[in-house]
Amino acid sequence: MTPPNTKNGFFQCFAGFNKNDILSRFLVMELLIAIKQAFVLLATGDADLYEVIFLSLKVNLTAVGLAAAIGLPLGALLATTKFRGHSALVALINTLMGLPPVVVGLFVYMMISRSGPLGVLELLYTPTAMIVAQMILVTPIITALSRQALARMHADYQPLFIMLGLPPRKRMMTLIKDGWVDLLTALLAGLGRAMAEVGAVMIVGGNINHFTRVMTTSITLETSRGNLATALSLGVVLLFMTLMINALVVTLGRRAQHD
């Protein structure tokens, strides 16, 4: 194959490649530039970026914490007890795992808008509203995954529980204590969902600069403005944050296990 005219220095690196290869190389370069820009933004302590990061963390971690406070005991309860309507409730929670975020956003919006039943609380376009929406989205995920993990464990432990005559509360506590690795996975799945969510927080938060703007809504905004490199940089920061949180939780978990 005859190489193209490569007098221009910029195109020198594409010599000998076909169109698809060149496109791939462009994308890789764009990504590398974005990664570099992301680390520059992080390293230079860009105030706006850190404001957005901290708000994202605050909203997502609070939402996951609240969802865990509901979902873990509920998952444990569903794993250890049978009652009328148990299967229907489990099916409902499994279904709610796939809740469309915009529907949740719309529901919360209707509840907290001025004319809604909770309008007097004046929560619309506040971080609290975003936390509520995230919590609604994440709770079914944590509940369903923890129930699934703990139900397997409960089947193994049940003869011992019966022989010891343990009440349901003690059974649940034992399962949560012994099954923390599985529960951690459920929490991380919930956090992953929250970190990636954009539809609901956009509707109830409004993406207000310096008040309700988070990573995902920033990315959406920058993309709509045509600032793809900035959007991509924010995306890399978001990925990096998720990776760091996962690493931190896994490390803490391992340390706790060894202790």
């Binding site: 193994d156 003869p159 022989m163």
Partner: peptide, 13 residues
């Protein structure tokens, strides 16, 4: 009552 089963309950401990 002490019970030993063919497959004992092994707790994650």
């Amino acid at each position: 009552i002490g019970l030993m089963m063919q497959k004992p309950v092994i707790m994650r401990r």
